[in-house]
Amino acid sequence: MTPAEMGAVHAESHAAHGGAGHPHAEEHRPVFTGAPRAELDALLSRYPTRMAALLPALWIVQRERGWVSEGAMAEVAQVLDLTPAYVKGVVTFYTMYHQHPVGRYFVQVCTTSPCGACGADDVVRAFLEHTGTRELGVTSPDGKFTVIEVECLGACGFATPVMVNDEFHESVTPDRVPDILSKLE
């Protein structure tokens, strides 16, 4: 299922403690074969325990699949000799791991106080309007965008910082938003 097919889904986790009837209970295609497996094996040599490779392994999953599904959590658990419940506890701690599919472009606007004092809320509104997502955490109908407010991006002197996937934009103002979006396919 591509993000586009998913339609509007919440990006930030819902009450994420394994309730029945998970919406994404699809067959999981293993991530850790071939190159990703070799990459993980190389990472494992950096740590004295297998567990320590958990965060890097989850990053690999997210890079390969765009999000971390329960199936992926189970696979990571198996690869690192952990239990799926343990992995899930860790995944839900770190907000950068997506527990649901998100838009092709994941837009994070910092609205913590220093940026809030410099008009970050207007930047958020501009993104919601110009991406057509309208609501925070909702993916646009074409599957292209998800916009969320994020806590401090550590670039407060460049208010308002915005991340679009891995790309960092500094000193974003509402009038720059259309321009930033126009460069995204």
């Binding site: 965060l55 989850l58 950068m96």
Partner: peptide
């Protein structure tokens, strides 16, 4: 490098 994942 150990990359964090979103936790102050």
């Amino acid at each position: 490098i150990h990359k964090g994942a979103g936790a102050y």
